[in-house]
Structures are given as structure tokens and as C-alpha cells.
């Protein structure tokens, strides 16, 4: 009976050293040591993160920021595709180092993860068939498609408890449900909806009514307690704004010559 017990002791030791390793290590050092920055980004939400049909790689506004961060660290960038619901589990389960996926900063989330300073701002808006939705008062009577694991879902449930919510894995699923008539409206952050509608062949059938029901600030999500990594991201974001690089990234996806022209109302450091 000595053999199994030794094995058990060994396993305990290994587990303990792993755990203490997790507690002591500083993620910024780990990233530099491993030479890889693991970033979770959307793969189905143009222009924030989507699979480029030519390169077959994830690209978009969030990805451009990820590339800048990796370049500053002098490490390789590894992108992990995510949907909205997997963002926090990916961080808490130590599957990625940073989440750059249109991640709204909230107090509740801030208890689970660190946030950088905001690098984007938006408001929660809706897409509906033309003529079905003109004011927020109508929301309570509608069947509305939301994305699982988003603040949109929580905000809508709190503000319009009588609305029927159907949650999908990602915005395009919700939009397909809207197109098929399963829901009457879908909700997401305005810029994300604009990006979505820009890629729809029959976009003239739909509209984004000109009201929003919340104002959201978007930041990078980081593992809880990783102060140095958070500081690094904050500094980098400020420098990207100062050098004009942040504006270049914005213009590449929302500038006047793009499919989704949108005036830049928020600059890094505004809040």
C-alpha cells in the first residue's frame, strides 16, 4: 500500500505547487517569459472582431489594439475566439491574458475581473424591421433577441421587465432570428449593430431606431488582481491616443470611407 500513497503525495505536491505558482506569478512576467500574449476577441462581430474571408484570421478594431499591445511587449499574439458569454470564464479560468471583445465596464463585472481605462464608448440600441419600433415605450410589448452573457440582457430585463427576452450565443444568431421573424427586435451596442447591418444584403428592410437605453464604456478585461498588466494596458492605451494611433485604428473601421462611418465621440482618457 505504500506505492499508491506515495503517488497521492506526489499528486498533492504537484497540485500545491501549481496553485502557489498561480498565486505568486505576475502575469506580465509570464507573458514576457512565454513570449505569447493570449487575447480573447470576437469572431463574429464586425468591425470589432470577425474572420477576414481573405486571410481567414480574426481581425477588427479590437484585434488592432491587441496587435499594438503584443508589439509593445515584443511577444507573439495568440487570438482566442470568444462569444459574449465565454468572456469572463475565459479570464477566471486563466485561458487568456486579456479580453478585447467590446467588453462593457460594469461594477458587477469589476468584482470578477480588472478593467483597463475605456477605449471605446457606445450605447445600447436596437435593430428592428422598418416601422416596428420608434420609441423605448414599445419595448415592453416586444419579443427581443439578446446575446447570452451581455450587459444588454441584464439592462433590458431590469428596465423593461415585461419584454420577452430570447438569448442567443451571438449577435448574428439573434439577427437571423429577427430576419426569420422569431423576435421583433434585437439589442446590442450601437456600433456593433451598425457593423452588423452594414454586412446584411437586404439592409434597407431594417433600421436602428435613434434612441439608446444606456451609455456604455468599453474596456479591456484582465485577470483580477493583475495590477502590473492592467497598468501596462492603461499606459499603452494613453500612448496610442497621444501618438494618433488610436485615431488611425478607429478610422480604419469607423472612418468616413468605411462601410460603417461613425463620428468619434470618445477619446481614450476622456473618462
Amino acid at each position: 500500500m505504500t506505492k499508491p500513497r506515495n503517488k497521492l503525495r506526489l499528486a498533492t505536491l504537484v497540485a500545491l505547487s501549481l496553485l502557489s505558482g498561480l498565486a505568486q506569478a505576475d502575469r506580465l512576467d509570464d507573458i514576457k517569459k512565454n513570449g505569447v500574449l493570449r487575447v480573447a476577441a470576437f469572431d463574429s462581430n464586425p468591425p470589432f472582431g470577425f474572420i477576414d474571408p481573405q486571410t481567414k484570421q480574426i481581425s477588427g478594431l479590437d484585434v488592432d489594439y491587441a496587435k499594438e499591445l503584443a508589439a509593445r511587449l515584443g511577444v507573439k499574439l495568440e487570438l482566442v475566439p470568444t462569444n459574449p458569454a465565454n468572456r469572463i470564464p475565459l479570464l477566471t479560468a486563466n485561458k487568456v491574458d486579456i479580453v478585447l471583445a467590446n467588453f462593457t465596464i460594469t461594477e458587477e463585472r469589476a468584482k470578477q475581473v480588472n478593467f483597463s481605462i475605456p477605449y471605446f464608448a457606445s450605447g445600447q440600441q436596437f435593430i428592428a424591421r422598418k416601422g416596428t419600433l420608434s420609441s423605448p415605450d414599445q419595448l415592453g410589448k416586444l419579443r427581443i433577441g439578446v446575446d447570452k452573457g451581455t450587459t444588454n440582457e441584464i439592462v433590458l430585463r431590469e428596465k423593461y421587465p415585461s419584454a420577452t427576452l430570447v438569448a442567443y450565443d451571438d449577435t448574428p444568431f439573434a439577427f437571423t432570428a429577427l430576419r426569420n421573424g422569431n423576435v421583433q427586435a434585437i439589442t446590442q451596442d450601437g456600433p456593433k449593430l451598425i457593423g452588423l447591418l452594414a454586412n446584411v444584403p437586404d439592409k434597407d428592410k431594417y433600421e436602428i431606431p435613434p434612441f439608446s437605453i444606456s451609455n456604455d464604456l468599453i474596456g479591456a478585461g484582465l485577470p483580477k488582481g493583475e495590477t502590473r498588466l492592467t497598468e501596462f494596458v492603461n499606459t499603452s492605451l494613453r500612448e496610442l491616443e497621444a501618438s494618433g494611433k488610436a485615431q488611425t485604428i478607429y478610422d480604419a473601421w469607423f472612418g468616413p470611407d468605411t462601410k460603417t462611418p461613425l463620428t468619434r465621440i470618445f477619446r481614450i482618457g476622456d473618462k
Partner: peptide, 11 residues
């Protein structure tokens, strides 16, 4: 699903 999400109209 990635492609379906990008192309939108061909599920």
C-alpha cells in the same frame, strides 16, 4: 457558424 455569422443570409 463563424462563416454563417459573417455571411448572414445563408444558414
Amino acid at each position: 457558424t463563424q462563416v454563417s455569422n459573417r455571411e448572414m443570409v445563408y444558414p
